[in-house]
C-alpha cells in the first residue's frame, strides 16, 4: 500500500460516514407504487396515530413501476419491505405467484367485497380507479356526437381523433389483458387491429393521453384513468369523463392493492399498516385527494367529484386469469406496439 493510503482511507471514511448518516431505523417499511404526493399524507397520518415510524419507498410511475416490483423480486432472499402498496393489481398477483407475499385475513378490508380480494389472502384491493374516456368538449362540442364506448376508438366516425397509451405497461396493459379475458381473443384482437386502422394515436402513458386531449390541437378524446382525468379537470381544461360501455360490458375498474411481504423484518407493524391502508378511512381520504379514487367499502361516503361504484356499471373481470393472459399476450403486444 505504498501509493495513496489516503485514497483508501478516504473511501473507507466515505462508506462509514454514509453508513452512519442514514436515517433512523424505521419500524415498518412500506414500498409504495402509488402517487407519492397523495400517499405521503396517508403515511404521515398513520405515523401520527400509531407512533410507528414508516420508512416509505416510492416508485416512479414514469418508469412504469419497474423499480419496486423488480426490487421486491430481487430482495426475496432477504426481504426489506413489510408492506407493498400497489396502485394496480397485476404486478401484485405476479408477486403473489412468485411466492413473495404472505397470506393474511385482512380485517381492515372486511367492508370490501370478496371479489376485490385474493382468494388465498395474499392481497386486498381497495380504492379503485376507473378506465374512462376523457373527452375535450371544445373539440367535440356536440354532446350527442361524443364517444360512449371504448369501441368508439375504432369507430370510423372518430378516425384520427382518439388516443390511448401503448398497452405495454401500467393500467392500459391491465385493461387490454382484461379485454382478452372478458371478450375472448378474437374480439380483443379485433379491437387492437382496429386501433391502427382508425389511426388512434399511441401515447407513452395515461398522463400523456390526458395532456394530448387537453391541448388545443391533437386528439379529441382518449382512454385514461380517472386520476389522470382529474388532473386535467383541476387544471381547468375543457374536459369531461365518459364512463364507457354503460350499455354493454361496463367500465373497467382497477383497484389499488395492499400486500404483506413474506419473511419481512417487521411483521407486526406491517399488519397494522396494511390494515390501516385498506380501511374505509383511507379510502375516504383517497377519494378526497387529487387522484379522486373510488372507495370499495360498502356504504362509504363519496365526495361530489367522485362517482361511487354504485353509480355506474363496472365490468366484471377475473384478475388472476387476466394476469395469466397478460403474460401470454405480452410478446404479441410488444410486437404490435413496440414500434
Amino acid at each position: 500500500m505504498r501509493r495513496g493510503p489516503l485514497v483508501l482511507l478516504g473511501t473507507v471514511t466515505l462508506f462509514l460516514g454514509t453508513a452512519c448518516s442514514h436515517k433512523a431505523e424505521s419500524d415498518v417499511v412500506l414500498y409504495c407504487a402509488t402517487d407519492q404526493h397523495t400517499a405521503e399524507k396517508i403515511v404521515r397520518l398513520f405515523e401520527k396515530e400509531t407512533g410507528i415510524p414508516v420508512k416509505a419507498r416510492y416508485d416512479t410511475e414514469a418508469n412504469k413501476t419497474v423499480g419496486l416490483v423488480t426490487a421486491l423480486m430481487e430482495e426475496a432472499k432477504n426481504p426489506r419491505a413489510d408492506v407493498f402498496w400497489n396502485n394496480e393489481i397485476i404486478h401484485t398477483i405476479r408477486l403473489g405467484k412468485a411466492g413473495i407475499l404472505k397470506p393474511y385475513d385482512w380485517p381492515g378490508a372486511k367492508g370490501i367485497e370478496a371479489r376485490w380480494k385474493d382468494p388465498k389472502g395474499r392481497f386486498a384491493g381497495f380504492a379503485a380507479r376507473a378506465r374512462v374516456l376523457i373527452v375535450n368538449t371544445e373539440k367535440l362540442p356536440d354532446p350527442k356526437a361524443r364517444p360512449k364506448s371504448i369501441w368508439d376508438l375504432i369507430d370510423p366516425r372518430f378516425k384520427g381523433k382518439g388516443v390511448m397509451a401503448r398497452p405495454l405497461t401500467g393500467t392500459t396493459l391491465t385493461h387490454v389483458a382484461a379485454l382478452f379475458q372478458t371478450l375472448g381473443e378474437k374480439e380483443a384482437r379485433r379491437f387492437l387491429d382496429g386501433l391502427k386502422k382508425n389511426e388512434v394515436a399511441l401515447a407513452k402513458s395515461n398522463g400523456a393521453v390526458m395532456r394530448m386531449v387537453s391541448a388545443k390541437e391533437g386528439p379529441a378524446f382518449g382512454l385514461t384513468d380517472t386520476d389522470d382525468f382529474n388532473v386535467a379537470l383541476r387544471k381547468g381544461f375543457p374536459v369531461i369523463a365518459v364512463y364507457p360501455d354503460q350499455e354493454g360490458m361496463g367500465t373497467f375498474v382497477i383497484p389499488n392493492t395492499v400486500a404483506l411481504i413474506k419473511g419481512s423484518p417487521n411483521p407486526k407493524n406491517g399488519k397494522k399498516l396494511a390494515d390501516f391502508l385498506c380501511s374505509a378511512r383511507v379510502e375516504a381520504l383517497l377519494a378526497r385527494s387529487g387522484s379522486a379514487q373510488i372507495p370499495l367499502h360498502k356504504g362509504a361516503e363519496v365526495p361530489k367529484e367522485v362517482r361511487p361504484l354504485s353509480s355506474f356499471k363496472a365490468a366484471t373481470w377475473d384478475f388472476a386469469k387476466a394476469a395469466e393472459i397478460m403474460d401470454k399476450i405480452l410478446p404479441e403486444l410488444r410486437e404490435r406496439f413496440g414500434i
Binding site: 412504469k64 416490483v69 426475496a76 405495454l168 405497461t169 410488444r334
Partner: peptide, 12 residues
C-alpha cells in the same frame, strides 16, 4: 425493449 423486459420481471 430492454426496459420493457424489466417492467414484467421474473423471479431471479
Amino acid at each position: 425493449a430492454v426496459f420493457l423486459r424489466w417492467s414484467a420481471p421474473g423471479k431471479p
